[in-house]
């Protein structure tokens, strides 16, 4: 198996775990930029293999939106709403790591063997991708702060891209550009909504918003 590929996949997986460990939002935003950069490098490798110009365009767009724009937006977000943005979690760190380990084991279990067997030579990397998805979902479940949840969604999306790449399920460049546009719009809307929620409730912690029901 290609060592570079392994390294990039491991980077993405480890940043997903890192999200759970760190308790500072600025580090979380930076970790997301690193994770996205790894995805960009994976896509760039795909461009080198195919020589497709549209793939190059995709790489540039991903770099611009997921790495630079997202980092910029999140950094501003953290600065602006520092008192309101929490990085606390429901589970303490040891317990969180136990659940992360359980999910990783589950992703490598027989249950997911049919998915990992899509491309047998990439089976380990595919399992890492699945583990990344599950751990990203756990981030959304476990964290109280809204920023961690936004990054959880984006990390989930990165894990899906990685899974798709290793499974040979790459979609057309047009579709990937469409997805990037979708993420761009989503980031903008999330930023606007977050600022509206903060203005209205004075907090960006989901635990504070239970009174929204009914």
């Amino acid at each position: 198996m290609n060592m570079n590929l392994q390294f990039l996949a491991m980077t993405i997986f480890l940043t997903t775990i890192f999200f759970h460990i760190i308790r500072r939002n600025s580090y979380t935003a930076s970790a997301y930029a690193v994770q996205s950069l790894a995805v960009v490098l994976l896509l760039f490798r795909s461009f080198l293999a195919t020589g497709s110009l549209s793939m190059l365009l995709t790489v540039i767009l991903v770099l611009a939106i997921k790495v630079f724009l997202a980092l910029h937006l999140f950094s501003n977000f953290v600065k602006k709403y520092k008192p309101g943005v929490s990085a606390t979690a429901y589970l303490n760190l040891p317990l969180t790591l136990i659940v992360v380990a359980a999910l990783s084991a589950f992703a490598h279990s027989r249950v997911f063997a049919p998915l990992a067997a899509i491309v047998p030579e990439n089976a380990a990397l595919l399992s890492l991708g699945i583990a990344g998805m599950l751990i990203s979902l756990l981030l959304m479940v476990n964290r109280k702060g809204i920023l961690s949840q936004i990054i959880g969604v984006l990390s989930l999306e990165n894990s899906i891209v990685v899974f798709g790449l290793f499974a040979g399920l790459e979609q057309s460049a047009i579709l990937q550009i469409g997805i990037m546009f979708n993420i761009l719009v989503w980031l903008i809307i999330t930023s606007i909504f977050s600022s509206m929620i903060y203005r209205h409730f004075g907090a960006l912690e989901t635990a504070e918003m239970t009174s929204l029901k009914e």
Partner: peptide, 25 residues
Amino acid sequence: MQSGLINMYILYILAALLGALYFSL
């Protein structure tokens, strides 16, 4: 079940996803 906590709803999704994958794969 309707706690109003977004985390809880995502947990339901995660549990449902794991359950569906477990029984379908």
